[in-house]
Simulated assay, not measured.
Amino acid sequence: MIVTEAELRDQLRRPVAGAKVTVAAGARLSPAARDFVKQFALVLVEEGGAAEGQAGDWDHDAVFPVALSGETPRCTQCGTGVTSKPSALTQLNSSHYASKTHPRIKLRGRVDSLHARVLWMQRLAHEAGEEALVADLASLAAYCRELISAEYNERPAAELRLAGLDPDTMHRATHDPRSILGVEHLTLDHHDDEIQHLLNLVRTESREIEILALETFPSPHDHGATICHALNRISSAFYYLQLRRAAACR
């Protein structure tokens, strides 16, 4: 089933950024409909399902974060359909291939690497018997997949929530840890364990990725702005976990 721009417009009296539109399960958007969704950062809701990108729907077991479906993808450089993909190209979205040096592909690779490190830390936390940390790292790994999915599908990223905390609460805790968690800001050395150092490493890496995202999606930008903001908050989440571990060891 193909959903047209006219069918989406029929659901909206006046298009506004972030509005929800309903589509049939498994439906595909026409090229004009995709442009309409991108222009207003619309949130697609499958009939009988949750809104894509809505907070909470991303926190689940691992699934491949992008769907390789749609019409024959076109090259972003020459505009022609790509029936046999050269090794130097990769899928930018469901309808276009791009060079592997494209800024969005570079950003996607860095988020993928962050995802791999989070999974590694989760394994170490499991071996150490820190099951609360295992659960939080599972959520952060899922959120990395959410960011990849949001970038690929060109939609707003969902809001990060960790252990019942919204991102703004975590952000405040990382700026005033003494009043909220009862510990000072952290300075690590050789006495700290491997997990604490890895949490610190991914915190710094997520800051670097945020800068890359800001270069990839210069302001103003619709869905890209939510990805940049999400990367800022995910670095706060890693630091929050560092502070929480430090507080637990007092």
Score class of each variant (00 low, 15 high):
residue 238 F to R: 14
residue 122 Q to N: 09
residue 100 K to L: 06
residue 118 V to L: 12
residue 234 I to A: 08
residue 240 Y to T: 15
residue 31 P to A: 05
residue 53 G to M: 03
residue 225 A to G: 00
residue 110 R to Q: 15
residue 27 A to V: 08
residue 200 N to D: 15
residue 61 D to V: 04
residue 170 M to G: 06
residue 188 L to F: 06
residue 190 H to Y: 10
residue 131 E to S: 10
residue 211 I to P: 08
residue 51 A to V: 06
residue 150 A to H: 03
residue 116 A to N: 02
residue 96 H to D: 03
residue 97 Y to C: 11
residue 127 E to R: 14
residue 129 G to F: 07
residue 203 R to Y: 13
residue 73 P to Y: 06
residue 217 F to E: 01
residue 53 G to S: 05
residue 97 Y to R: 00
residue 57 D to A: 12
residue 18 G to I: 00
residue 60 H to F: 12
residue 162 L to I: 13
residue 76 T to V: 11
residue 145 R to A: 08
residue 99 S to E: 11
residue 111 V to K: 01
residue 66 V to D: 05
residue 57 D to C: 01
residue 147 L to E: 08
residue 245 R to C: 07
residue 21 V to F: 14
residue 142 A to K: 04
residue 86 P to S: 04
residue 110 R to W: 12
residue 129 G to V: 12
residue 9 R to Q: 14
residue 168 D to K: 07
residue 146 E to P: 03
residue 200 N to I: 05
residue 43 V to P: 07
residue 172 R to N: 05
residue 156 P to H: 08
residue 139 S to K: 06
residue 49 G to W: 03
residue 235 S to Q: 09
residue 86 P to V: 01
residue 5 E to S: 13
residue 222 D to M: 08
residue 145 R to P: 02
residue 134 V to T: 08
residue 169 T to H: 09
residue 101 T to R: 10
residue 49 G to A: 15
residue 136 D to H: 04
residue 145 R to D: 05
residue 131 E to T: 15
residue 107 L to P: 15
residue 113 S to Y: 00
residue 81 G to V: 09
residue 171 H to T: 07
residue 134 V to P: 05
residue 196 Q to V: 15
residue 187 T to M: 12
residue 245 R to A: 07
residue 186 L to R: 12
residue 199 L to Y: 10
residue 203 R to A: 11
residue 110 R to G: 01
residue 244 R to M: 11
residue 153 N to C: 13
residue 127 E to V: 14
residue 94 S to C: 00
residue 140 L to G: 09
residue 65 P to C: 11
residue 232 N to W: 06
residue 173 A to C: 15
residue 249 C to Q: 09
residue 174 T to V: 06
residue 60 H to W: 10
residue 136 D to Y: 00
residue 43 V to F: 12
residue 93 N to W: 01
residue 198 L to G: 10
residue 193 D to L: 11
residue 44 L to A: 04
residue 157 A to M: 11
residue 28 R to W: 12
residue 35 D to G: 11
residue 148 I to G: 02
residue 128 A to L: 08
residue 123 R to V: 05
residue 4 T to F: 09
residue 188 L to V: 13
residue 129 G to C: 05
residue 152 Y to Q: 04
residue 70 G to V: 03
residue 93 N to Q: 02
residue 133 L to H: 02
residue 173 A to F: 15
residue 64 F to K: 03
residue 131 E to R: 14
residue 170 M to C: 07
residue 222 D to C: 00
residue 246 A to D: 02
residue 203 R to H: 13
residue 115 H to G: 01
residue 94 S to T: 03
residue 153 N to M: 10
residue 237 A to D: 06
residue 174 T to H: 03
residue 125 A to M: 10
residue 14 R to V: 02
residue 190 H to V: 01
residue 94 S to P: 02
residue 127 E to P: 01
residue 206 S to T: 09
